[in-house]
């Protein structure tokens, strides 16, 4: 399941709900991404492409389900203006065994970071700037090609 939203989410509540929707599951892996407040960051605004964002995330989830035997998968991604320490993204995967859950969780994040149409704008005391994409993210995504 995919959710793209401006409002915050409660990772603990999401995990509790996620683990209850599935049976015959031996492993749940999760990833929580936060706004890192280093370098004097005041705020981070996530721009996105409504419609394409959901479409791409659904395609990435479908690809993860094709590659690993997942009982369930969840991706929540926020947009709008966020502050240091705020939740940005939550990924959960459930499978029979831990290896599939771990790998699928990592795959979802790696592909999300290079394919889902989100853009970060950072505000500092001296002004604001769009975050540039990292080649290390491309390399991380390419591992799964």
């Amino acid at each position: 399941m995919i959710r793209v939203q401006a409002e915050d989410f409660d990772p603990g509540a999401e995990l509790s709900r996620f683990r209850q929707t599935t049976t015959d599951v031996g492993a749940v892996a999760t990833f929580l991404g936060l706004v890192r407040g280093d370098g004097g960051l005041i705020a981070m605004t996530l721009d996105h492409y409504p419609g394409m964002t959901e479409r791409q995330l659904e395609a990435i989830e479908a690809e993860a389900r094709r590659r690993w035997p997942l009982a369930d998968a969840l991706v929540i991604h926020r947009h709008g203006r966020l502050l240091p320490g705020d939740n940005i993204v939550f990924v959960a995967t459930a499978s029979t065994h831990r290896q599939a859950a771990f790998e699928a969780c990592e795959f979802l994040m790696d592909w999300l970071k290079t394919k889902a149409p989100f853009w970060k704008f950072e505000e500092h005391a001296q002004g604001g700037a769009w975050v540039e994409a990292k080649s290390t993210d491309d390399a991380a995504a390419a591992r799964w090609e």
Partner: peptide, 28 residues
């Protein structure tokens, strides 16, 4: 992106297409 799918510059266009231009993505 054309009609919300990533494409390359040689992608053929049709009159009703939705074409989006953006920098490399930085979500997550």
């Amino acid at each position: 992106a054309v009609n919300q799918d990533h494409v390359q510059p040689d992608h053929a266009l049709n009159p009703g297409d939705e074409v989006a231009f953006f920098p490399p993505v930085t979500g997550g």
